[in-house]
Simulated scan of single mutants.
Amino acid sequence: MVSLFNTTRFLLICLGSGLLLSSCKYEDIVKADYPQQILYMPAAKNGVFSIASIVTSGAYRFTVNSAEKKVIIPLSVYRGGVSNDGDLTVNITANADTVSKLISSSALVGTTLLPADKSVLPGTVTIAGGSYVTPFDLKIDLDYLRSIPAGQKLALAVTIASSQVPVNPVLKTTLITFDPAILKPVPDFTSKADATTARKIAFTNASLNAVGYSWDFGDGSAAVTDASPTYTYSKAGTFTVTLTATGITGSADAAKKTVTLTIP
């Protein structure tokens, strides 16, 4: 009986000691330091943030503010880590050295550095306590972009820094390249008569950098805004078909292409 009591007592002591040790380990985990916060720019993850085409749906890479005469490129700065406590001040600068080195090494062919006086960046932004992200805009002079000759691209590097938390060294600079050619539409189209109805013409639009279209079929009919319309002429004759393509700058850079058609 005494042996059984001693055995039971021993087991209870061991169980209590195990619970106590588990409790101590739990306290150690609770008191452990959280991973420190770190800043980064998501746009930097693909190496080059290239703007060389127009996106008319989904997430946009830039917009045009005609009133301000600015091309606006949306960017953002994030903070990683378990905690998002406290306001963070982030410094934002245009990094000309990065672009110059890449141009000198022929890593950016057909590209020139965007002049400092042709763009605007906020000097600082604040990531508010409780938030992981703050957006900001890079604004580029629209008239300057429109003056750039065809085939010439521009580049600008944007770098973030902070005295409060470290910055991911791989994702601290976003290299942005911009092709001004996308601001100017290039109208183009082909036409083909229907196999059974010769006066029925199918127009195939092959325009570049356009977001809107207007077709004049040359017979006095109302303009058509379909991208690739099919039109049936009511009589024979020779008609001048005009396609007006409108780009993202609106009528400022609208362009026309005309073709003469002979309808039997």
Rank of each mutant, 00 (worst) to 15 (best):
I54Q: 01
S214Q: 11
Q164F: 06
A32K: 05
V133S: 05
K172M: 12
I51C: 08
F203W: 04
S147M: 01
K101L: 13
P166W: 15
D87W: 06
K31S: 09
T204R: 11
P169W: 10
L114N: 10
K31N: 05
K192F: 02
I29A: 06
T258L: 08
L243K: 03
V158W: 07
P169T: 14
T126N: 14
F189Q: 04
D85R: 00
D194Y: 04
G220R: 05
G81V: 01
L142F: 04
A236N: 12
L19S: 06
T190R: 06
L15S: 10
C14M: 10
P166T: 15
L108T: 03
I73V: 15
A59F: 14
I160Q: 03
L102S: 10
D216A: 10
G47L: 07
I263Q: 04
E68L: 14
R61Q: 10
L113V: 12
G212C: 00
D85S: 12
Q36I: 12
N209R: 09
I263E: 08
S119V: 08
A59N: 15
I51V: 10
F136L: 06
K200F: 05
A44L: 11
G81A: 03
A181N: 09
L39E: 02
F178L: 07
A52G: 14
T230H: 00
A32M: 06
A223T: 15
